[in-house]
Amino acid sequence: DALGYVREFTRHSSDVLGNLNELRLRGILTDVTLLVGGQPLRAHKAVLIACSGFFYSIFRGRAGVGVDVLSLPGGPEARGFAPLLDFMYTSRLRLSPATVPAVLAAATYLQMEHVVQACHRFIQASYEP
């Protein structure tokens, strides 16, 4: 005689993210093209705004409504940005000693503080014997 019953699907958030990534890969409902290092990357503004303080500040206001192509002058290079875009859609951040400086710079630019901290932990760990 509980007040109410709930079935919690514990995989739901990762299943939703997986479907969003599939939509991205197929260009379904992607509403912005990011020009990063001249390379065009399609994405969903809603995912970008949910994952990045920088995109939150750009797209939350009316100014972000009509924007469907966004170049990031003086912004991150593609080899630092692409792993972050994949992270947003997969929760997995690919890092290597060669790419972590570019990923760190991109995460700082995109105001993704938690990723910045993880990059610092990765760098720290790579110095430990």
Binding site: I49, C51, S52, Y56, R92, Q111, E113, H114, V115
Partner: peptide, 22 residues
């Protein structure tokens, strides 16, 4: 090969929290 990738699990918050509407 995915198998060759060392995966470290990060349990903490991954992204910013969008402030709740006051």
């Amino acid at each position: 090969h995915e198998g060759l990738v060392a995966t470290v699990k990060e349990a903490g918050r991954s992204i910013h929290e969008i402030p709740r509407e006051e």
